[in-house]
Design a protein around this nucleic acid. Structure first.
Lengths: 220, 220
DNA sequence: ACCCAGAATGAATGAATATTCATTCTTCAT
DNA sequence: ATGAAGAATGAATATTCATTCATTCTGGGT
């Protein structure tokens, strides 16, 4: 244990000596969920490992099992987080009274759904990674459908208001809402899988067309 | 090596003594691809193992590496197969002259895309399993987009014919084709992830609505 | 100043899995 | 019949990974 001369190059270099930090449970959990999202987006769900996630979070391997009891659980909670974030965003717009004009509210919704940023692409990846497994994993189906149901409900209500407001004939709010949701999902998919063929710009335009054909007096 | 009395219960039971069979390469490959599809649909892409696939195919573990050089390759070829099957089906309908009436041809297309059967669900699972990984795997993106491009092209052409045939004003074939494709993808997703909320019946009706709004004189 | 509850660490463990390859079996040309 | 080419097998190997837990460290309470 002699602090001899050379052999121990305790060159922590200029790296800040990483001091172990203790944080409230909720914060650590969020860090891990965030890291999981990044890893899924970058490597794909099937390639994600605990090592990968904890390294990305700058923490030790054991910590994921400390805060979530297993990998399965971490993945489940990550899906729940992403699903809720997306759907809460939609719901805020749809039921928020900040935008009284119905046409403008539709526009805001569309903006949110096909809107900007790297984050968006990352979230989309995660989204579809789970969808891909959903066929084989009822747990995922349940998480998504629970959250989905409420958003679908609100969208139908919004559409119904617009229909009544504009006196549109022969249009069924429920049917249209299902179609619009599916269209948005499909566009997300296109943006993810064939970004070359489908720009974000064109995706928006396609979605707007759909709405315009249904509600010509409210959109543009 | 004495064939003693009891200890070797060579009870192959009533199982037909499985005779080793030698088949042409193409056939074996197809067997393995089929088994892979079943496994992905049942267990999810991330849970598929070579053991699982070869057992499902009723063959030995080594065979997959004999005919495909690796698991990666088997998965890649499986995606290619599913993608081509789906898109060839569409293209056959779209360019086949067997159905001269344009409206009827649209209906046939819709039938194919949202049509019947267990097979359909299995294929959808596979489809989305790969989409889920596509964000992180350029190879998958390329396979899908290559095949996709041609189908999109044909659909646009079909729509253009219909537009000219019906003298529809203010409708862009390309835009509409993108929208329709996205809608179908989104409906597939809904059928896969939230089958409780979206029946096949309703999905068809939603897609038909879309077409009817665009081409009122051709659909119903 | 000093404890100590419990947060964080990471080496160790064991289970799972892709891939290899020596061996066995089929088929077919002769 | 016979032999050879190569298709098929599956035990063995090496790797990767989730999970565990003995140990270390931190920060608030006293």
């Amino acid at each position: 244990m002699t602090e001899a001369s050379s052999a121990t190059p305790e060159v922590l270099a200029d790296a800040q000596t990483k001091r172990r930090q203790i944080l409230p449970k909720a914060e650590r959990r969020q860090q891990l969920v965030d890291a999981t999202i990044r890893c899924i987006a970058q490597h794909g769900l099937s390639a994600v490992t605990m090592q990968m996630v904890t390294r990305d979070a700058g923490l030790s391997v054991g910590i994921a099992n400390l805060h979530f009891e297993s990998k399965d659980n971490l993945l489940k909670e990550t899906l729940r987080y992403v699903a809720e974030e997306y759907h809460n965003g939609q719901i805020d717009i749809m039921e928020g009274a900040e935008i009284p004009d119905l046409g403008a509210r539709l526009d805001a919704l569309l903006d949110f759904q096909l809107g900007r940023g790297v984050t968006q692409r990352q979230k989309m990846s995660v989204w579809f990674a789970y969808y891909g497994e959903a066929g084989a994993r009822p747990v995922y189906q349940k998480i998504v459908s629970t959250v989905d149901k409420l958003a679908a409900q609100k969208l139908e209500t919004l559409f119904a208001s617009i229909i009544s407001d504009g006196g549109y004939q022969g249009v069924d709010a429920r049917e249209l809402a299902t179609g619009y949701s599916a269209l948005i999902d499909g566009l997300h998919l296109g943006l993810l899988v064939t970004p070359r063929e489908l720009s974000k710009r064109r995706a928006r335009s396609v979605a707007r067309d759909f709405l315009r054909r249904a509600f010509p007096d409210h959109i543009r």
